[in-house]
């Protein structure tokens, strides 16, 4: 977070398949996912719950070790977890026995105490929590805790930021605020951002590219939609509403198809 331009890495996924279990119990969760996320852009993955969004993100995070297909991060093939990627989970996953400051510092290593503190405070200020550094997580609201989690994910200046339904548990107003904030952070950091959500409104507001997933079929990704609307986006603009409608009806169709087969 030196203020200098940290450029994100692009993500190139080719024929990604992920199966849990073996033999008759095998569950094909991700089927033949091929996708490109340009460096420094925002991709939102939408789809009903259980369609494999988290699994997809976990593959990118390096948490799933067995899969088929190829994933390139920048020029490097994906190989396990790494600090080139920041991860924000659906729940904040702050360590309850560490203060806010210590939680962010937990992500750092090899720095002097002074350097660590400087990095941490800069990150906390960036998410608007400079004054909460010494609090324990139990005192934080859901939105504040998630901001700390975001600060922790950003503190190593990742080239790629992976977020799994980060605002799913927040109230409507906080959610809207956080969407604005993540956009502002992204504009400063210039990282590549992959955000999983079940909220179509959120996807249309944030994304350069929306990846629509649904279970079943030969391919888990049913459609990718490039969103060309200029930012800041107006949720009441006709184009915004039309796009949201389109995705929603597309998802409904997918669900109908799935139910007819079953």
């Amino acid at each position: 977070m030196s203020g200098a331009v940290t450029t994100g890495a692009d993500i190139r996924i080719e024929g990604l398949c992920k199966t849990f279990g073996e033999g008759r119990r095998a569950a094909k969760v991700l089927r033949n996912v091929s996708l490109t996320v340009p460096a420094g852009s925002i991709a939102c993955v939408v789809g009903q719950s259980g369609c494999g969004k988290s699994t997809f993100l976990r593959v990118l995070a390096g948490l799933e070790t067995t899969y088929d297909g190829s994933v390139l991060l920048g020029k490097q093939p994906l190989h396990g977890p790494g600090l080139d990627r920041g991860v924000v989970f659906q729940e904040h996953r702050l360590l309850p026995w560490l203060t806010v400051e210590q939680n962010v510092a937990f992500a750092l290593k090899g720095l002097s105490r002074y350097e660590t503190r400087r990095c941490v405070m800069r990150c906390l200020k960036r998410v608007g929590l400079g004054s909460c550094a010494r609090q324990y997580p139990y005192l934080l609201s859901g939105g504040m805790a998630q901001r700390v989690a975001i600060a922790r994910a950003l503190v190593n200046q990742p080239k790629i930021l992976l977020l799994d339904e980060p605002f799913g548990a927040l109230d409507a107003l906080t959610k809207l605020q956080m969407q604005q904030e993540i956009l502002a952070l992204w504009e400063q950091e210039k990282t590549t951002l992959v955000l999983v959500t079940h909220d179509i409104d959120e996807a249309v507001f944030l994304a350069d590219r929306i990846v629509v997933m649904a279970p079943g079929g030969a391919q888990t990704v049913k459609e990718t939609i490039d969103v060309a609307l200029p930012r800041p986006r107006d949720r009441n603009a006709a184009a915004f509403i039309a796009l949201r409608k389109e995705i929603l009806s597309f998802l409904f169709d997918q669900e109908k198809k799935l139910r007819r087969k079953a």
Binding site: A61, R85, R93, L95
Partner: peptide, 27 residues
């Protein structure tokens, strides 16, 4: 397990993981 995953994502060393996660959690 969620903290184990977090540590993997952050490439936390085993020693640090024990000191900062396992022991305080067991306290």
């Amino acid at each position: 397990v969620k903290f184990v995953e977090l540590a993997r994502v952050l490439e936390t060393s085993r020693l640090r993981f024990i000191a900062k996660v396992v022991l305080p959690g067991a306290l």
